[in-house]
Design a protein around this nucleic acid. Structure first.
Lengths: 272, 272
DNA sequence: GTTGCACTGG
DNA sequence: CCAGTGCAAC
């Protein structure tokens, strides 16, 4: 029985609920991780997700900014969230997903992250937002080193880092731009290859030389023509889970869904 | 030669300029008084009004809130504005309109008002906005008692009061609702019948038992079906001018013009 | 540049 | 419900 997981920085779940529901109808993932829901827990549109066939929710919102949520067809247990770098923003939520009898997996833990964007200046001394981003990554590395991260884990979300040369429209022009500076890409690659060995189950399905983006700035007049994207949104799993991958997709057309789309598009990983 | 004057609370002249120009093309008033222009003087779209055949402007704007303007086919002189109750908001502008040779009138003074809405609670002790509204009306009464208000005057605007029983959808249900409380309707009726005797040149053309509205709340889901309106927008003249009236019209369809209409519609008074 | 939210005012 | 401002964030 096929299973799929999706992640999408939605930039206000209330404002973009219609296109999120369109996405669920059209792509039918088992689990969707959302970032930047920009609402309090009580304001999260639970009923609408339930009506759409996603009755299980792990919501960690906050007022106005950030906020993450997992919506799922399958039961979610052990819901928790974690503070990184001692900054109390809603940037992580996790849950144990029970995919049921038909699945090749037993239960697996899904971690949904919204890693800090990091501001404009790539200097942790001068820019506290960049310091926060690096601190967040550093704590993440320690945490992932713990033993229970060895298996049955999926981590995804808006990592705000495009790690590979062809994860940005111009490697050269973005080397000084936060999201693609060496200090960040090295930290993210260390996270990926360190610890117990994560697999980037999306890039796995696209040649390393192929440009691959999940985000296009609002600032470009014609995002499609310019196509100056970055791959900021990721899905990684432990090796046991990665053994069952069946494909991956980045839903580029979603950048044009509705009048006022999110600047990010959904990323999907499929498992056989 | 026929002459007509119109008043319209436009709730942002910049946002709704297209439908204002449509209105001018379709109804061709000589003078249009606007309220809630919600812009600074420099942001008022003078060129667009000039191009539409209304090259004369008396603009008294302010940042963000309130703001009134007169646009005219005919020259405007003696432009002035007045502060009421010592609260410096842009709620009045007046001008002398020279209608030229073909007119039955000599020059007349047009006063354009945006009387304070008055907040929710009809108690001047507890609600400073209601106190402001009553104070505004009180100062208006004194001012209109001055000798020069005896003739050749037209006053109009959003008075934020529905004075008559059939100026609201339910007299009984609105007796405690600001805009139709006895203290307000009595103050407005005293203004109308006191001083040198104004004529409500719009209600003149509709039987007193006929429901007549110029405003429908944004809050109603289906304003047209509910039809819970109020007549908040008025045109009054001195008796000399009222002697020449030829009709009046409230442009109810304007409540549905464009995706995002104003909650008020234009009111027109015609003179032979 | 462009967005979404909080707030105020209606 | 609608519009403005001010703000933070990207």
């Amino acid at each position: 029985m096929p299973t799929s997981f999706a992640t999408w920085n939605i930039n206000s779940v209330r404002l973009r609920l219609p296109i999120v529901l369109d996405f669920l109808r059209q792509y039918d993932p088992d689990v969707l991780c959302l970032q930047e829901i920009k609402c309090l827990n009580d304001q999260f549109p639970r009923n609408e997700f339930t009506a759409a066939g996603y009755p299980h929710h792990a919501v960690h919102g906050q007022k106005g900014y950030h906020g993450v949520a997992i919506v799922s067809k399958h039961p979610l247990t052990d819901i928790s969230s974690r503070v990184f770098f001692e900054i109390e923003e809603s940037r992580h939520v996790s849950a144990l997903v029970d995919l049921g009898q038909g699945s090749v997996f037993g239960p697996l833990t899904v971690h949904n992250f919204y890693i800090p964007a990091g501001g404009d200046l790539a200097d942790p001394e001068l820019n506290p937002k960049f310091k926060h981003k690096l601190g967040f990554l550093s704590e993440l590395k320690s945490w992932f080193g713990e033993d229970h991260f060895r298996e049955r884990q999926l981590i995804c979300g808006d990592f705000n880092i495009a790690p590979l040369e062809h994860d940005v429209w111009s490697h050269k022009q973005l080397l000084d731009v936060v999201s693609h500076t060496p200090i960040e890409t090295e930290a993210l690659n260390a996270l990926l290859s360190g610890g117990h060995g994560w697999v980037d189950v999306v890039r796995k399905y696209f040649p390393a030389e192929e440009k691959l983006y999940s985000w296009w700035s609002y600032r470009a007049k014609d995002w499609q023509a310019a196509n100056k994207g970055r791959r900021l949104d990721h899905i990684w799993t432990t090796a046991d889970i990665a053994a069952h991958t069946a494909g991956a997709e980045i839903i580029k057309p979603a950048r044009g869904w509705s009048d006022k789309p999110s600047d990010h598009v959904p990323v999907i990983a499929r498992f056989a």
